[in-house]
Amino acid sequence: MARKRRTFSKEFKLEAACLVLDKGYSFPDACRSLDVGETTLRRWVQQLEVERSGETPKSKALTPEQQKIQELEARINRLEREKSILKKATALLMSEETNSIR
């Protein structure tokens, strides 16, 4: 029978990665105590290292700072798209107004 895929909270992932990076646990020891696969834990640790170096991760961030950065980047992207739409609409209205004057 197939094993059901488990999901973990951001807090759990962060704490698990901190066990290895900050508390000095080895990967096998941390995996046994948390009941997670070693590949999974290595991915979380790698992601936390990237976040701590200041890079914004491609996947969902673990640290609150990087989560905020991702939210702000998404907001900037949305606002830039809206601005582009408004520019195009203004240009279209101006061209129609110019054509109607002639």
Rank of each mutant, 00 (worst) to 15 (best):
L41V: 07
L14M: 05
L72C: 07
T98K: 14
R3M: 08
L41W: 06
K58T: 11
Q47G: 03
K58A: 11
R75T: 13
L48K: 04
S84A: 15
T39E: 12
T98S: 13
K23I: 00
T56P: 01
E96W: 09
E73K: 15
K88M: 12
D29N: 02
S100N: 10
A2N: 07
A30D: 05
M1K: 04
S53T: 10
K58R: 13
K23W: 01
M94G: 00
P64A: 13
F12R: 04
G54P: 09
A74T: 10
S100M: 10
E96L: 15
E55M: 10
P57Y: 09
L41Q: 08
E71T: 06
K83W: 08
G24D: 04
T98P: 00
L41G: 08
K60E: 15
M94Y: 03
A17M: 02
F8H: 15
E96S: 07
K10M: 01
K68D: 12
V50P: 00
A89D: 14
S33N: 07
E38H: 05
K10W: 00
R78A: 14
R32E: 04
R78P: 00
Y25L: 06
E96H: 10
S53A: 14
R102A: 08
T7I: 07
A16T: 02
S33G: 00
D29Q: 09
K58L: 10
L79A: 09
A2W: 04
Q70D: 05
E80V: 14
M1P: 04
K68V: 11
V36T: 12
V50G: 01
K87M: 09
E55K: 14
L92Y: 10
L14D: 03
D29K: 10
E15C: 01
D29R: 08
G24R: 03
L92V: 02
L62K: 04
G24P: 06
R5P: 03
K87L: 13
K60C: 04
A91M: 11
E49W: 00
S33I: 08
L72Y: 06
S84D: 14
S59P: 00
W44M: 06
Q46Y: 06
